[in-house]
Amino acid sequence: MHDDQELVAATLKGNRTAFEMIIRKYQQPLFNYIGRMVGERELALDFTQDVFLRAYACLPSYRPQFKLSTWLFKIASNLVIDFWRKKKIPTMSLDQPFEEDGDSYCLQVPDHAPSVGRSYELTELRRKVDRALARLPAALRELFVWRHINGLSYEEMAEIKGLPVGTVKNKVFQAKELIRSRLEDEI
């Protein structure tokens, strides 16, 4: 496997095959992220294509001190946010406390609800997590997908969003708690 920086340098020298290798490496993680953010397959395919087209056009401005994956996810995130704005989907600031149903949401002490883990088999649990994920507020969903589906570190997520690591962690915990509480509601 070639190093990302080598592939970028080769692309900038006019080697299109190098950029095709970048696409092959990152197409699946980006599509997994964008698909779960926009919810429509065709739209997700278009957006994923757009990420690579923008990346190709902007490659001369890419700074090698950043990871290529982080840069690509940042482009994708900007596209998704533009989409939410055009669709008038609320895009809450991650700096603000998250509110659901008008009440400020905070991490609660665990209650005595039946255990979600014990109630479902893994396959069933995956299906339910996927469904609960689709109903998460978009900004929390984005962080949850990056963390648990794309496997990004908190530091990478903080860099993409331009937020402190602690804030990102807190939002990921909120997303997990929301998913857990929604699964408990289903039991």
Binding site: F31, R36, L122, L125, R126, V129, D130, I149, I179, R180
Partner: peptide, 14 residues
Amino acid sequence: SRALAQAASSLPDL
């Protein structure tokens, strides 16, 4: 919580 994280991280690729 471990089970939920495992379920999320093992979701099939789109």
